[in-house]
Deep mutational scan, measured.
Amino acid sequence: KTVEVNGVKYDFDNPEQAREMAERIAKSLGLQVRLEGDTFKIE
């Protein structure tokens, strides 16, 4: 899975870890996480 923030992509081998990281980043920035294919987009 991939986490994308402001056009910057971070790859994770563990999908659960990617989801947790995406949620943590989104919460700290006051944004939403949206799953698009294999990418968690933070917008």
Rank of each mutant, 00 (worst) to 15 (best):
A22I: 05
E36T: 06
F12M: 05
T2I: 12
V5Y: 14
R34H: 09
A26I: 03
L29W: 07
R34D: 03
P15K: 07
I25K: 01
K27S: 10
Y10A: 03
V8T: 09
E4M: 13
E23R: 11
L29T: 04
V5M: 08
N6S: 07
Y10K: 03
K1V: 13
A26D: 00
V3T: 01
R34E: 04
E20S: 10
K27L: 13
I42R: 00
A26E: 00
K41Q: 04
K1A: 13
G7D: 03
E36V: 13
D38E: 08
A18R: 02
V3W: 03
Q32C: 15
N14G: 06
L35K: 07
G30M: 05
E43T: 12
T2Y: 14
V3G: 01
G7Q: 03
R19Y: 09
G37I: 04
I25L: 10
Q17H: 11
N14A: 07
Q17E: 14
D13M: 09
K41N: 03
T2G: 05
E4V: 13
R24E: 08
A26Q: 01
N14T: 14
T2D: 03
V3D: 01
F12P: 01
D13L: 10
Q32A: 13
K27A: 13
E43N: 09
A26L: 04
D38K: 06
T39C: 15
Q17R: 10
E4C: 15
L29Y: 08
I25A: 04
D38S: 08
Y10C: 15
I25E: 02
F12W: 04
T39S: 06
T2P: 03
D13Y: 06
S28H: 13
L35C: 14
V33W: 14
E36D: 12
A22F: 06
E23Y: 15
E43K: 08
L35F: 09
R19D: 00
T39D: 02
K41V: 14
A18L: 04
S28Q: 14
K41I: 15
P15I: 12
P15A: 13
V3I: 10
K41H: 11
R34A: 05
S28Y: 14
T39H: 05
R24N: 08
I42G: 01
A22P: 00
R34K: 11
F12T: 02
P15N: 08
V3H: 02
E16P: 02
E36W: 08
A26H: 01
D13E: 12
E20M: 13
G37L: 05
D11G: 11
R19K: 10
L35E: 09
Q32N: 10
M21G: 01
D13P: 10
G7V: 03
T39Y: 05
A18N: 00
A18Y: 02
K41S: 04
K9W: 06
A22Y: 04
K41P: 00
I42N: 01
E23Q: 11
V8R: 12
K1Y: 15
V8Y: 11
T39L: 08
V3M: 03
V33Y: 14
S28I: 14
A26W: 04
L31W: 13
V5P: 00
E36I: 10
L35T: 06
V33C: 15
E36L: 06
R24F: 12
Q17T: 11
G30R: 06
I42H: 02
S28R: 14
D38T: 10
Q32M: 12
S28K: 14
R19V: 04
N6K: 06
D38G: 12
Q32S: 13
Q32W: 09
E16M: 10
S28L: 14
E4F: 12
Y10F: 11
T2R: 13
F40K: 00
E4L: 13
L31F: 09
A22C: 06
S28F: 14
G7T: 03
N6A: 08
G37H: 06
V5W: 15
E23G: 06
K27Y: 11
R19A: 07
R24T: 09
N14P: 04
G37W: 05
E43V: 14
D13A: 12
D13H: 09
V3E: 01
R24W: 13
K1L: 11
I25C: 15
G37A: 06
R24L: 11
L35V: 13
D38I: 05
K9Q: 08
A26M: 03
G7Y: 03
L29H: 06
A26S: 06
F40S: 01
F40Q: 00
K9E: 05
N14W: 07
A18I: 03
K9C: 15
V5G: 01
E20W: 12
V8S: 06
D11E: 14
F40G: 01
F12N: 00
T2V: 12
K1Q: 07
R34N: 06
V33A: 06
G30E: 03
L29R: 04
V8K: 12
L29K: 04
L31I: 07
R34Q: 07
N14I: 07
D11W: 15
F40P: 01
G7H: 05
I25T: 06
P15S: 10
M21F: 15
F40T: 01
E43A: 10
V33E: 01
E36M: 06
R34L: 08
A22Q: 00
T39I: 13
Q17C: 15
P15H: 12
K41M: 09
A26N: 01
G7A: 03
Y10G: 00
K41L: 11
K9Y: 08
E43Q: 11
E4W: 14
E36K: 04
R19T: 03
A26R: 02
K9S: 08
V8H: 09
I42Y: 02
V8W: 10
D38M: 07
A18M: 03
G30C: 15
D11M: 15
R34S: 07
K1T: 13
V8I: 12
R19S: 05
R24G: 05
N6E: 07
E23N: 11
A18S: 02
Y10N: 01
R24K: 12
F12K: 01
P15Q: 09
D11F: 15
N6Y: 13
T2H: 13
R34M: 07
G37T: 02
S28P: 02
E16H: 09
R19I: 06
T2F: 14
V33G: 02
G30A: 04
E16K: 11
K9V: 11
D11Y: 15
P15V: 11
F40E: 00
I25M: 09
N6C: 15
I42P: 01
Y10V: 06
L29A: 04
Y10P: 01
A26K: 01
A18K: 00
G30Q: 06
N6D: 09
V8C: 15
L35A: 06
R19L: 09
L35P: 03
E43G: 14
G7E: 02
A26P: 00
I42Q: 01
Q32V: 14
F12H: 03
D38F: 08
L35Y: 12
L31E: 03
N6M: 13
E20C: 15
S28A: 14
E43W: 13
M21I: 09
D13V: 09
S28N: 09
A22G: 02
T39F: 04
L35N: 05
G7S: 04
G7K: 04
K9R: 14
N14S: 13
V33P: 03
F40D: 00
R24I: 09
V5N: 02
R34I: 11
T39G: 05
N14R: 08
E4H: 07
I25R: 02
R19G: 03
G30D: 04
L29M: 11
V3Y: 04
D13Q: 11
G37M: 04
E23D: 10
E43Y: 14
K1N: 09
G37F: 06
I42D: 00
E16S: 10
K1E: 03
K1P: 07
N14Y: 08
R24M: 12
A26T: 01
E16C: 15
V33L: 11
A18V: 03
L31V: 11
E36G: 02
I25F: 08
E36Y: 11
K9A: 08
D11I: 15
E16R: 10
Y10Q: 04
L31T: 06
Q32G: 08
E43C: 15
L29F: 07
D11P: 10
D38W: 06
A22V: 05
A22L: 05
D38A: 07
D38Y: 07
T39N: 06
E4G: 03
D13I: 09
F40Y: 15
T39R: 04
I42A: 02
D13C: 15
L29D: 01
M21L: 09
N14H: 08
T39A: 05
N14V: 07
Y10I: 08
R34Y: 10
N14Q: 07
E23F: 14
D11N: 14
L31S: 06
P15W: 12
L31K: 04
P15C: 15
E4R: 06
T2Q: 09
N6L: 14
L29Q: 04
K9G: 04
I42K: 01
A18C: 11
V33F: 13
I25D: 00
K1W: 15
K41T: 06
A18T: 01
G30N: 07
K1D: 03
F12R: 02
K1M: 14
D11V: 15
E43S: 12
K41G: 00
Q17N: 08
E20A: 13
D38P: 04
V5E: 01
V33D: 00
K41A: 03
G7F: 04
